[in-house]
């Protein structure tokens, strides 16, 4: 690239990665494989419409409706879709229920497979190498770093996501919240509690 312009003049400069994305988008648009409006719509959906509130809705429904919980256990893909949250990549969902005996933790050791339709896009740490490698090797150590120390005797089961199968952790309903409204209960369900690096908030913490 030539640098014959006046360096005192503040002309426009594109970030190298921004230029590469534009180049790819230009080529793909010319080939008729993408269009700008579709790209904008996808960005808007993931920035504003899809997020862990969807997953919290699923969890709260499972807490307050035994028939839904049962459906969620048997066919999570259909049960979740019934609430309007369908995966865009045709992936299957499995709901893994925490119990007094077993705590569930989700990871993707290969890359960053994640249940987008119910949790939005994954947090940075979920995509980073330390979590991806250590969640399997030392789940209790990882949980301790998230401030979660499990009772002795509660086992940890780690679920490794794939492109075809994504997991949603259903945390246990906190004691003392029986009879709460769904809206009130949803505030107790954090994103991390549905990945398994946290549990649902206690009523006094909400």
């Amino acid at each position: 690239m030539t640098h014959d312009h006046d360096h005192d003049h503040h002309d426009n400069d594109l970030d190298p990665m921004a230029a590469r994305v534009r180049a790819l988008e230009t080529i793909l648009t010319r080939k008729g494989l993408v269009d700008a409006a579709a790209i904008d719509a996808i960005v808007e959906t993931y920035e504003t419409k899809v997020g862990p509130r969807n997953g919290a809705h699923v969890v709260v429904k499972a807490w307050s409706d035994p028939a839904f919980a049962d459906w969620l256990r048997r066919d999570a893909t259909a049960a979740i879709a019934s609430l309007g949250y369908a995966g865009r990549q045709g992936e299957h969902m499995q709901a893994v229920f925490n119990t007094a005996e077993t705590h569930n933790l989700v990871v993707c050791t290969l890359c960053s497979c994640y249940p987008w339709s119910v949790l939005g896009l994954p947090p940075v740490w979920y995509k980073a190498p330390p979590y991806r490698s250590r969640a399997v090797l030392d789940p209790r150590g990882v949980l301790a770093e998230f401030g979660l120390v499990l009772p002795e005797g509660q086992k940890v089961r780690v679920w490794d996501s794939t492109a075809e199968l994504r997991y949603l952790v259903i945390p246990m309903q906190p004691e003392g919240t029986e009879g709460w409204s769904e809206d009130r209960l949803a505030k107790l369900v954090s994103r991390d509690s549905m990945i398994g690096t946290a549990v649902a908030l206690a009523p006094e913490a909400a």
Partner: peptide, 28 residues
Amino acid sequence: TAALAGTRDEAVFSEPWQAEAFALVVAL
């Protein structure tokens, strides 16, 4: 990992090109 766990509430995309790259994959 402890430091990573602290970055809880980051934006979905930190720069616009990341959103575009993400959306290209979904669209294709």
